[in-house]
Design a protein around this nucleic acid. Structure first.
Lengths: 226, 226
DNA sequence: CCAAAAGTGTTTTTTTTACACCCATGT
DNA sequence: ACATGGGTGTAAAAAAAACACTTTTGG
């Protein structure tokens, strides 16, 4: 491993990472928040975050912080924006590079550290009081996801491996916050070629069973818009 | 002014800003580069950049650095991405938040400092050898501008206050790197309502004079796509 | 046989693309 | 009068939107 040294002569801001973790829960786009015990945040809900280590890339910091503070191992991670207002953190000058993570919430048991009193999913339309500038970060993440779901396959990270077309449509409706036409949605999503039949059928309720589908690839790809 | 203190306990990366300055010159999308004297950059061309001060926002750093190193006062500035690879800068651990600036190159007299031997515009299709990870940054800026010109009024910053429709079309062609149909372009851009007639006519060469137009507003706005 | 969600095509409207000639000027 | 870039409309093709009934199952 290459030697990396801190530039001692530079006196500058500290650098942190904050992560907006996003899932679609019961048809609602939701964000994972921690309730802090720190009085300086006004005992508000905040995003999981932490400082960037000297030997870590920003992506690695995001992964580490999210795992440490929520017990989530990330499915999809993308850098969002770097917030650098001088007074954004009352504790001192901290610049924060924000990320968003997309997860299937059913896959993880949430678990946080002693620095926080609670960990909880909140629908983005019913957020609690948020500390620091974290609400701004969340809003930006929502906008990014809302745009990106229309021209990429990122929705794959919000679902289990196999799913029905109705489930997939519900994801899109949750993210876009509007109803879509079933027939048009199916035609379009199938024509994109990003999903294919998985073979099985889902027998669940007193109705016709739904065909199961899966994504051709979970690798990020851009496609023509929805 | 509020007191801002450095978080002394945190040992982390230094934070810098790099700026990709973009103009459309002779129908070519171009980037402004500096030739460094620093042997560690291999005497290559690099982006103007500098460290973030304790009392500065990132946007302010970008403006200051660009003014100091190129004598350009920015027209339009937008944050691009934060690059945090551990070994991206051979001099030590430096995380860099990149920006891109859009300018009308005719407005400024380029002027750099003694740390650099040259300052020059390069067409993005004919870049010289670039130092550090700066080529990656430039590529990302180009992609961003290319996307954004299609659904916003950012092109206004690449032109003088008044311009002909042909000039505007040339900007779009330079950014998108393809020819557009004159009639379709005019219909679309006029229907968007972001520009209006300025009244005058441009008498220049031995041909019919062109009508002058101007942007309704230079404030950033998103519109329906081109 | 009833309730519930799955599945399926066609028509209309809107948007996009392709395309060729006349106009106003300076020399 | 001619060379040069400015300016204009229409038709065909493609994409998007609107819309309602039949199917399969469990109870």
């Amino acid at each position: 491993m290459k030697k990396v040294r801190q530039l001692k002569t530079i006196i500058g801001p500290a650098l942190a990472v904050d992560v907006v973790t996003i899932a679609a829960i019961n048809g609602k786009l939701s964000v994972l928040l921690l309730k802090t015990k720190d009085p300086e945040a006004g005992k508000n809900w905040v995003l999981p975050g932490g400082f960037v280590g000297l030997q870590e890339t920003l992506d690695q910091t995001a992964q580490r912080v999210l795992c440490e503070k929520t017990n989530i191992r990330i499915n999809y991670l993308e850098q969002l924006f770097t917030f650098g207002d001088v007074d954004r953190d009352t504790r001192g000058r901290v610049v924060s590079t924000s990320y968003f993570a997309l997860v299937d919430h059913r896959k993880f048991n949430l678990l946080t550290t002693s620095a926080y009193s609670k960990i909880e999913w909140f629908p983005v339309l019913k957020l609690p009081v948020i500390g620091y500038d974290n609400e701004k970060i969340i809003k930006k993440a929502i906008i990014r996801v809302r745009n990106k779901i229309g021209y990429s396959n990122i929705s794959c990270h919000l679902l289990p491996k196999e799913f029905t077309l109705t489930q997939l449509q519900e994801i899109y409706e949750a993210v876009l916050n509007r109803k879509l036409d079933k027939r048009n949605f199916r035609r379009k999503i199938l024509n994109l070629g990003i999903i294919k039949e998985a073979g099985g059928k889902k027998y669940l309720a007193a109705n016709r069973p739904a065909g199961m589908y899966k994504f051709v690839s979970k690798k990020y790809q851009e496609v023509e818009l929805l």
